[in-house]
């Protein structure tokens, strides 16, 4: 750990400001609390919001896991883990069950989280209504008046055009019957998992917003009676571990149209394989 930085990089006053925002966010689930996002030593879009929330939440005793689209070993995840190893000296892990804080980009781990864990999301666009109404002053008024008709019109237009709701990720949810919230670009397959035992914190660095879900908060994906929400995924088992219940990535294997489906959650897949589960393409060298 480098001694030249304050613990977890940010100075204390910045952390206090972020911590106050987190507490207000937990008190008003689903509401986006503005905060004075800082310049971080990484570009916007690389998780600066999540990193600031993690930095304000981290204690020296934590075990940190960082995933990017479910994977522990991509550039983004590795560099954020290194960042906190250096500036906070915390232990980093890849196992979901061993982690006390998990920072994630675009996935919720397959393994259910416990009530001593915290899930921190990196959020690009926190405002679910932004693509329908570009003006912040207007979307703020829509949230204040609980005026979410536009969102339902958008979902209805999907049905009119495609026969089903075509939104597959960042699928909007309603929190405790009040605020419509963007769950960050997680696949809609993950939406039902959001009613969980862990605390969920969302940080958007460029857009300067923090929002949160306390444990067991009611999170309902928007839908219609005749077109109920469908948390679907690719209809395949994982080619490596054979999991039927995990979200899958499609991997193109050649230029002849060959492809395979594998778990996007690398830790889940590895744990299953270590326990002897095998998919159809697994190399049985073990």
């Amino acid at each position: 750990m480098s001694d030249d930085y304050n613990f977890a990089y940010l100075d204390e006053q910045t952390k206090r400001m972020i911590r106050r925002a987190i507490l207000k966010a937990l008190a008003i689930p689903g509401y986006q609390v503005p905060f004075a996002s800082r310049e971080m030593p990484m570009p916007y879009g690389w998780g600066t919001g999540g990193v600031q929330v993690t930095a304000a939440t981290l204690t020296p005793d934590d075990r940190l896991k960082v995933i990017d689209q479910g994977a522990d070993d991509t550039t983004n995840a590795v560099s954020i883990r290194k960042f906190f190893e250096r500036t906070a000296g915390v232990e980093v892990v890849t196992s979901t069950s061993e982690a006390s804080i998990i920072q994630t980009r675009h996935r919720i781990p397959e393994e259910p989280l416990g009530d001593d864990q915290i899930l921190v999301y990196q959020v690009p666009i926190p405002e679910p209504l932004r693509f329908l109404e570009p003006r912040e002053s207007e979307t703020r008024k829509m949230h204040a008046l609980e005026e979410y008709g536009l969102m339902h019109v958008k979902l209805y237009e999907d049905i009119a055009r495609h026969g089903h709701i075509a939104t597959a990720y960042a699928y909007p949810v309603k929190v405790e019957g009040r605020y419509v919230m963007d769950p960050s670009p997680i696949p809609k397959f993950d939406n039902p998992k959001m009613e969980m035992a862990a605390i969920q914190l969302f940080g958007a660095g460029r857009e300067q917003r923090i929002y949160a879900l306390p444990p067991w908060t009611r999170v309902v994906s928007l839908d219609f009676e005749d077109h109920p929400f469908d948390p679907s995924k690719a209809e395949h088992p994982c080619a490596l571990c054979g999991a039927e219940d995990a979200y899958l990535d499609e991997v193109i294997t050649d230029d002849q149209g060959g492809r395979m489906f594998v778990c996007s959650d690398t830790d889940y897949c590895e744990t299953r394989r270590a326990n002897g589960h095998r998919g159809e393409l697994a190399e049985d060298a073990a």
Partner: peptide, 19 residues
């Protein structure tokens, strides 16, 4: 030790407010 003690205290406050 402000950095570490306030981090631990915040976690306690957050945990209490979230539950």
């Amino acid at each position: 030790d402000p950095a570490q003690q306030s981090a631990q205290a915040f976690r306690a406050v957050m945990s209490a407010l979230a539950r």
